[in-house]
Amino acid sequence: MRFPTLSTLALGLLILLGPAAFAGPPAANQPSEIKVDTPAQEGIQVPKPPFSEGIFPCTSCHDGKSMKPNLKRRVLTDMHTDIILNHGPASRWCLDCHDANNRDSLHLASGEKVSFTASYLLCGQCHGDKLRDWRVGVHGKRTGNWNGLKQYLLCVNCHNPHSPRFKALKPMPAPTPPEQIKARKGGAR
């Protein structure tokens, strides 16, 4: 786990106080409606990672005592069989990203541990251009206030890390063609 330095903490605090501190009166009379799920890190506010129901913390099973880590690259057959890995080279496997010594954590190629709420650092090792664009708010989605507190989505909120291609969606209904639109009778004017 990386501990935030004092300056990143201060920056986070500044972001949290942002709207109240410098948005001026209009923002003050309408309280921000954005939900804050996790504390800000590096001044970035992210939601909870989208874990499968009941799966976290991983250490409730992978406690390192009753279940010893098996470092051998293999296809999982007993557990997690729902996960289909379709991300990068075929040789990739769980412990390339998940940390064998602390399962509640991820790790970078360097071995440095990274929390699930900062998984973008892990993604950014290969997708550096996307991480750069995400940090400035061009890649990915932000909600909240354009001039204050905003929540970023994590990479994994849109891209399943095990199979990251963005999934196709059913479109909402097409507009009604003008010839089928009937004016309703009555009303003022």
């Binding site: 209009p26 309408q30 890649h139 990915g140 989605k141 909600t143 909240g144 206030n145 354009w146 905003k150």
Partner: peptide, 19 residues
């Protein structure tokens, strides 16, 4: 937006296309 918030279309877009 005059109260500091993002427009509704920005917040709904599932692909983050709207800035």
């Amino acid at each position: 937006t005059r109260n500091g918030r993002y427009p509704a279309c920005v917040e709904i877009c599932p692909t983050g296309s709207r800035k």
